[in-house]
Design a protein around this nucleic acid. Structure first.
Lengths: 257, 257
DNA sequence: CCCAATTTGTTCGTATGTATC
DNA sequence: AGATACATACGAACAAATTGG
């Protein structure tokens, strides 16, 4: 199931890793897919001539990558499993954990992708889909007055973006939109942004979402693109300000040079 | 080291998975980073009160995610490791293995990101960087005459894109550009595209790269954006044609209805 | 409700491999 | 070369979970 990617470093693999790779190519060769059961532990032990522990570690590797799931009991075993979006998000998130992304890094991507998404959806959504978008919007028609509410509205706004992404027929675009939104949420949470209510962002956000749905319904891709583009610009500016405010407030106390 | 992502399903985790998660948060809490050594197996066994096999499986999980590497011998042990780009690419590739991406899906992203990359680099590259780009270009000044050469030139062209991505200060953009290029290469290879030489694409590709470097040197972001945008459009059209040709040629024989 | 069968999950003791000093 | 410290691998036994009778 893993496309045999170009291997640059011929690093020596441990036995379980070798077994894991062997199982992968075995699965691909035989054309097995999600739901199919791998041979049982004991069969694998016989097949590979290795100890139980080794085989189990190999299975654990595949499991960590999200490629298989195992169940105990009769009818149990190790089953091939589609990698879930959540798993993929977590694994990719690990990579960026070490890359110290900035808010601006993420917005550079969002500014490119979100407008593209909007444009590609214009005129292609059903009434039901447009209605679902409107319903999410209607869930926050009042400005937030507490940090709690502010946070909830932020989450709701992310839900709007996630829902929009869901409607794309492009799995890659879908994933990236949701991933960037998640990363942004993680960062803002970990840096405790969105601390104070911000009525201005709320009203402009509400406004753009309503105009966006209208443009999507009208099938006006150019307008949809521009609306989202402007909003991204706006949101980025706001986030940057929040970041600065926060930095000025907290940084000097423990991080003064 | 893993950002404690929002957990939706409270799925029961196996013991090794619990241990792996515990070690992760332990590492984060203590602020350990790449290069730091985890406690030895025996210490972990004592710390978690579990058998060797369980601990080993936990380590294997972390290793599969690219978060640690282990070495034997004195001074050996389990060490925290930055997730490599290659590992992240492979793991994310597993996700899309099940999502049957099309050429157009990938190009929708490339068309959005590559021009953005070019624009963001305009006027910000050193002479050395611009020179490196020109050197890659000069490595294929002759049109390909065999499928071999065609393939090599395609790879070289991808190297140009990879090099360009490398120069971005945005790790996310860098990764995505390279990832999409890789996915495209995997797909074209697995579908055996790029079978015949295509002098027309070669010359237009060469031309756009030269014009791009010129625009980057001149600091003209708008021009750089447009050049790459046009090329992406061009390349996509070409790939689509190749795909159709291939389909017409091979599909009927084994896949006729 | 319990029992038996099946399959993964966990433990322990021991031995081997590997790199450092 | 030999001792040491560490991960790696093996094998046998036992535990837990699930299914069906």
């Amino acid at each position: 199931m893993p496309p045999a990617t170009t291997r640059s470093a011929p690093e020596r693999l441990s036995r379980p890793q070798q077994v894991a790779e062997a199982i992968k190519s075995w699965v691909v060769e035989n054309g097995w897919g999600p739901g199919d059961r791998l041979p049982s532990e004991s069969e694998l032990i016989a097949r590979f001539g290795m100890a139980k522990g080794t085989i189990r570690e190999a299975i654990r590797i595949l499991e960590a990558q999200g490629l298989v799931k195992s169940r105990t009991g009769p009818g149990g075993g190790v089953f091939i499993h589609q990698v879930s979006e959540a798993r993929a998000t977590a694994l990719l998130g690990n990579y960026f954990y070490f890359q110290h992304l900035t808010i601006d890094d993420i917005y550079q991507i969002r500014k490119a992708l979100e407008p593209e998404l909007a444009a590609s959806l214009a005129g292609k959504l059903t009434d039901a889909q447009l209605g679902a978008l409107e319903q999410v919007i209607s869930s926050y028609t009042e400005p937030a007055r507490t940090p709690e509410q502010e946070r909830e509205q932020h989450v709701a706004s992310l839900r709007f973006h996630a829902l929009l992404a869901e409607m794309s027929g492009n799995p890659l675009l879908r994933f990236l939109i949701r991933f960037t939104a998640n990363m942004l949420a993680d960062i803002t949470v970990s840096r405790k942004l969105y601390a104070q209510p911000n009525p201005e962002l709320w009203s402009s956000g509400l406004d753009y979402q309503q105009r966006l749905v209208a443009a999507l319904r009208a099938g006006d891709g150019a307008a949809a693109r521009q609306i989202l583009s402007q909003h991204m610009q706006n949101a980025q500016r706001h986030m940057r300000l929040q970041e600065i405010v926060l930095t000025q407030r907290f940084l000097p106390e423990d991080d003064m040079i």
